[in-house]
Every structure is written in structure tokens, then in C-alpha cells.
Amino acid sequence: MIRRNFWSKVILVIVAAFYVLPMIAMARFSFQRVPVIKLGWSTLGKNWTADSLIDAVTSERFLQAGWLSIRLALLSVVLSLVILIPTTVYVHVMKKSARSYVEFLSILPYVVPPIALVVGISGAMKVLGTWFLASPFSLVPFYVIISLPFTFRSLDTSLGAIDLKTLVEASRSLGASWMRTTRMVILPNLKVGIINASFLSFATVLGEFTIASLLLKFTLPAYLAESQGSNPQGTFSVGLLLLVVSSLMFALMNRLSKRKGHALTGLTL
């Protein structure tokens, strides 16, 4: 028992180091005004400053890209939920047999490369309406698609432990209309799934680079790529900031989910 405890701690330390060491390195590179070649034990405490981060986050390019990314992320979350909540409820309540098809569709974005998606859709859109791809918000449908593996699965797992069909029927037999059943029974039981799906699709959108760059949209990752050459310290500090913010978001998400005994299951990023 003690032995096992010891080894599990060793593994934990190794994993933590794997995660934290690059972050420390990033932090030193970004926030210390010391030439890279001199970054060692002796210079650990020297010349720490947040200037590079402040400069970066107050630059107009950053604000422009950041604002776009946040709007895209929020819209993608909303659109994902609008499409997926009814779909998930439908397959759980009305047609269990359709679940495996929906699940298959939801993991397709894993295997279809973003480039194929972009080429396919932009080809179709050139015929149907060029205005679509001109707007930066044309990214939203792409983002809804690429976050499908996370969003559908979050909602689906949150219903895995309960028999939604029976709950809906119980509610209806007790006199609740569909509207009321949705409000009083379905949504409360989907809450954890909705929280998880929202966080995951938000994070996916904030970090997505390929599609944005292929469609020439200036999102946060595009900004990072662009400024890497001209302002490496600023870029790294923003990268680190994003990493910390998303880690905190996941911690928060896990906390919110665990309140009802559902841990975040079966999901990896």
C-alpha cells in the first residue's frame, strides 16, 4: 500500500513537471529582461517585468484579434448548444437507435482534416454566396463542427447515468407540458453537460489556428503566429496567459461538474 502510494506520487511529480516546466520556461523567457543565453540558475531572480505582456495586450492588433476570438467563441458556444441540446434530447427520448449515428457524426471532425473542410465548404460557398466567406463570422459554423466531438459527448455523457425517456414520461404523466418538462426536468439534468460543452467549445475556438489562417481571418492564434517574429517575448507572454486562463477554466468546470457527482469523464484534449 505504502509502496503504491510512493510510486503514484512519483508519477504525479513527473506529470506535473512535464506540465509546469515548460510554463516556467515560458514565463522566464517572457517576463525576464535577460538575454536568453544567460537564463540559468544564477539569473533566476533578475529583472522580472510584465512589460512585454502589458505591451502585447494593449496593442491594437491584439485587442482586435482577441475581441474577434471572444465573439467567435461565444457565438460558437451558443450555436453548438442550440443545435445539440435538442439533438441529444431527441436521441435519448425519442429515438435511442439514432444515437450511434449521431455519435459517429460527432467524431467525424477528428478524422476529416480542417483543410478538407475548408476546401469543401469554400468551394460550395463560392457558388452559393461569396458574402459568406467574406465575413469573419463565417468561422462560426466551422467551429461548431470542429468542437462537435467535445460538445456532443459532454451532453451525451451527462444523460448517460439517467433514463431521460422515463423522466420525461413521468413528468408528462404528472401533468407537465413539453415546455414545462423541458424547463423543470430536461434542462436541470443537462446542466453539467451544458457547462462542460460550453467550456470545451470555448477553449477549442480560442486555440483554433488552421481554419482561421486558411480563411485569412485575424483571430487570437493568428495574432500569435503573426507577432511571433516581431515580438517573441510578447507572443509567449500572451500564450502563457491563454494557457493559465484555460487551465483555470477547466478547474472551474470540473468544480462545477463535481458538485453533482459527475466528474468530467471520457474527455481528453
Partner: peptide, 20 residues
């Protein structure tokens, strides 16, 4: 008539209580 207007009490096999 739709189910919710029939005023019938129903007991299911199991797992029908609202977990929340």
C-alpha cells in the same frame, strides 16, 4: 388528448424519480 392533460398517475419500473 396529450399525455399531460389526462390526469393519470403512473408508476414506472424504476429510475423515474427526478434525480435533481
Amino acid at each position: 388528448l396529450p399525455a399531460h392533460t389526462r390526469n393519470m398517475g403512473m408508476v414506472f419500473q424504476n429510475y423515474s424519480l427526478f434525480p435533481h
